[in-house]
């Protein structure tokens, strides 16, 4: 079984990223947007891994570890914000969160 060429991995990562991006843009539900955001991050992660392996260096994998750590922290904070927002507004609709808008 021969190894898949690297552009397959990159193409899949790009696909994941774009699905995530479109999801962030078109969806209103903050939790779904949040999930899409995770999807974008993971798309990027895949590309990092693939390119890192193709080049034979560990840097790509190292960055992925960092991204995962930061994503975990970000998930905790993001979910906390959404939860507390829900408590006060009884809704997780991102378009309604416009208190700071002029």
């Amino acid at each position: 079984m021969g190894a898949l060429p690297v552009y397959h991995y990159v193409g899949m990562g790009l696909l994941l990223f774009l699905i995530g991006a479109v999801g962030v843009i078109i969806r209103r539900n903050a939790i779904v947007m949040f999930l899409c955001l995770e999807l974008m991050l993971n798309g990027v992660n895949v590309i990092f891994m693939a390119l890192g392996r193709a080049k034979g260096s560990v840097e790509g994998q190292v960055i992925v570890l960092f991204v995962m750590a930061v994503a975990a922290a970000e998930a905790a904070i993001g979910m906390a914000i959404i939860t507390s927002y829900y408590r006060t507004h009884r809704s997780v609709d991102a378009d309604k969160a416009d208190l700071m808008k002029w």
């Binding site: 991006a21 843009i25 969160a97 808008k101």
Partner: peptide, 14 residues
């Protein structure tokens, strides 16, 4: 520019 719609910001960034 500041519409308050997150989608607009996301499009802007992208």
């Amino acid at each position: 520019i500041q519409t308050g719609v997150i989608a607009h910001y996301a499009i802007g960034i992208l």
